Structures are given as C-alpha cells and as structure tokens.
Computed example of a mutant assay.
Amino acid sequence: MLEQVSLFVHSMWELLVSKHSEGLYNSVCLAVLLVLPLLLLLLSVCLCCQGCCGRTCCCSSCRRQQHNRARRKKHDDLWISSQPQPIMMESLTLSV
C-alpha cells in the first residue's frame, strides 16, 4: 500500500517537473490547478467555523452589543406611520 502511494506521488512529481520544463504557460496552469482546491478547502473551513462558532458567543460584551443593537433597532424604526403628519402650508414658500 505504501509503495503504491509512493509510486503515485513520484509519478505526479515527474509530471509536474516535465510540464514546468515545457514552458511558463504550463507552469501557471499547474499553479492555478493546484491552488484552487486549497483555496476551496480554506474557504469551506472558514465558513464552517464562522457558522459554528460565530453564533454562540457567551461573553458579556457580546451580549451587551446585541442588546444595544436590538434597542437601537427598536428606536430607529423608519416605517411610514399610519397617521401621517399634515404639512403646514405657511412653512412652504414659493419663490417667484
């Protein structure tokens, strides 16, 4: 089993070296193909950690910030009221 893995890694290394020696374009393509799975893995780990750990914070400063946000959201209601305020006509001036 270990011999098969070693043979696979050796053949992949030989492929990389031969493609690299063929030119710059092949080297760039190989770099992109090798980096994309690593970036995908890193992104999925970051998203998983954010989803799992980001929701459950039990420190007092986080609770205070959540409470302040809820209070601010309650006071900063920007909906149009059901009873609109009448506009005073004398406050409007017409400039001719």
Rank of each mutant, 00 (worst) to 15 (best):
K19V: 04
V28S: 00
M12K: 03
H20L: 06
W13A: 06
S6L: 12
L78A: 13
M12T: 02
W13E: 01
Q4Y: 08
L30P: 01
L30Q: 00
D76H: 11
L34H: 00
R55H: 11
H10S: 14
N26T: 00
W79G: 08
A70K: 11
P37E: 03
L24T: 01
S95I: 11
L94E: 06
S60Y: 10
L36I: 10
V17N: 02
L24I: 07
L30M: 07
M89K: 02
A70S: 14
C59D: 15
C48G: 01
S18D: 09
C48A: 13
V28D: 01
C58Y: 15
L7Q: 07
R69W: 09
R72K: 13
S81L: 14
V9F: 07
L39M: 10
D76L: 15
R55F: 12
L43D: 05
W79L: 15
S82T: 12
G51S: 08
Q4F: 11
L39P: 00
S81H: 13
C57I: 14
S21T: 01
S44K: 02
M12C: 09
H75A: 15
N26L: 05
S95P: 02
C29T: 10
C29G: 02
H75E: 14
G51C: 07
N26R: 00
Q50K: 07
L2Q: 06
R72A: 15
V96Q: 06
L47C: 10
L36W: 01
Q83L: 14
S82H: 11
Q83H: 13
C52T: 11
K74T: 05
H20M: 03
L34F: 05
S44R: 00
Q66M: 12
I87T: 04
S61Y: 12
P86I: 05
S11G: 01
L39W: 03
L40G: 09
V45D: 04
